[in-house]
Design a protein around this nucleic acid. Sequence first.
DNA 1: ATGGTCGTTTGACGA
Length: 260
Amino acid sequence: MLLATWNVNSLNARLSRVERWLANFHPDVLCLQETKLADDAFPALTFEALGYETFHHGEGRWNGVAILSRVGLEDPQAGFAAGDEPDPDARVAWATCGGVRMATCYVPNGRSLDHDHYHYKLSWLDRLRSTLDRTCEASDDIVVCGDFNVAPADIDVHDPTRFEGSTHVSAAERDRLAALVDWGLVDVFREHHPEDGLFSWWDYRGGAFHKREGMRIDLMMVSRSMADATSAVLIDRNERKGPKNDPPSDHAPVFMIVER
DNA sequence: ATGGTCGTTTGACGA
């Protein structure tokens, strides 16, 4: 199986690229974030024509997440489990695809350490963990992927000294990722690639991509059974390139190949 | 080069 995640920064602006990526890579499952669409504007028929069932959870102008699957799509769920404080934003969706419980996540940015949005971010990650407690077992086949807006370690940032005092690298955010690891999930990309300089997001500004100044914030957090069956994990950084008339997202797709 | 980029939108705001 090929399982992928991609923050597209508006599906309207990126639809031709997503269609091309599906044709090139034939993923079994593609998780999208930041579709920025309402559910009734999601191009389900376009993806159906390419062989994909879809589940979209959106609100319109901001956020929006989707799961595309050509190996079945069962038990779709939007948001957090009953019992957790509901999310006012459309930031997470779940579905079982080919026997794997998938989650597509767009974790809040946080804005700054003294902003209310930062506390929302921490609470959001707490509720993600709580929903796992309520709905999954660590022994299941699970892939919780998406834009986490957290760099798990300093190696995931091009210049950690530039990010001191910023979001994405704070101890509290990294503690929330560690809580997912404690629960039983593995950062499967890092398990396959110990080296530095590997990123999934580059700021549009200042030629960051060409200066190799990025962060690795798009993660595939997978259960042990999935990690053990994974033969490769890659970032398609070529997808961050492109001309003004077909501009890239500021995030590149991340995908894993599972031998099953 | 005292700015720099996108996408939402048509004035800023979020990332």
